[in-house]
Design a binder for these strands. Structure first.
Ligand code: FES
Ligand code: FES
Lengths: 143, 143
DNA sequence: TCTTGAATATGATTTTTATCATATTTTATT
DNA sequence: AATAAAATATGATAAAAATCATATTCAAGA
């Protein structure tokens, strides 16, 4: 469904949203441990996210990663798109290509509605939305 | 979502259901071309499926693959389980482990219903069910 | 029973994904 | 300006998934 890398990235972004800010940046080594992802690995993922402006960063002493207000408004799918590419969640369930709506495969009619719902949630839910759920105690960050 | 291998396997099974029978077995080379999967690759997948009794086979001249009546009644998920293993569709969307229902991740509440629907369809729909849809012209086999 | 046509078992190779390592660049602090 | 602390760029290695190759086994038909 999602690659390991995407899962890691989502965890990291949410962790930052909850624990960092422009005036309290967090370094990779303080991210990797609580989210349980190897440091060098999450560092690389974060770099990709910074490049696409999904997260913010600053180097040098007092540097680190954080999310600014615009970062918080990104939909979760944008994280997945950066890490996994656009087509991962989009390909036909029976072939490697995307759905052919005129000639749907036998799984399409059965499953496409559910899949569309998932896509839709990932598109509409922002980092801020998920953070709110965690703050309300309705959801938890898995390690 | 599903691995390439699972998709290939599902295509092959459906192809057999539509084009083979105990008295009209089909050889790998006559399966691989129409479903557009390399021969040696689909051969290996079919061998796994035979071992788990998802498809039937016979060797020697006049041999080949086919589906008998019990094969036709297998749910699609059993194909996926043989090829991808049980946990592929089951892991938590944010971590590598399966859902923790008591402490759901922030994506869980949002997405688990849709995911459960998908699982449910794969569990309830049999090979025979999908074949029927194809025969009715409601669905098509992708190459 | 010999030959031939098929699946099967086994394993090698290639590609992709995941993971690790490090030299370079930037910036706050002294 | 010099130092040190951080991200960044880049690339190496390891593991897993996908793909390819082939020798072996089994069964039908001559
Ligand atoms: S055509 Fe296969 S899932 Fe849409
Ligand atoms: S999907 Fe994460 S806890 Fe269920």
């Amino acid at each position: 469904m999602l690659s390991n890398s995407s899962k890691y990235a989502i965890k990291a972004v949410l962790f930052l949203a909850l624990n960092a800010s422009e005036k309290k940046k967090v370094m990779v080594k303080d991210i990797s441990e609580p989210i349980n992802v190897p440091q060098a690995y999450i560092a690389k993922l974060l770099q990709s996210l910074v490049k696409e402006k999904i997260v913010s960063s600053a180097r040098g002493p007092k540097g680190g990663f954080y999310l600014d207000e615009t970062n918080m408004d990104h939909p979760i799918i944008s994280i997945v798109n950066v890490i996994d590419g656009e087509k991962r969640l989009n390909s036909c369930l029976m072939s490697l290509k995307k759905c052919n709506e005129e000639k749907p495969c036998p799984l399409h009619n059965e499953l496409s509605a559910s899949r569309a719902q998932i896509l839709n949630s990932l598109r509409s839910k922002t980092v801020k939305d998920l953070v709110k759920e965690v703050k309300l105690g309705n959801a938890f960050l898995p390690i």
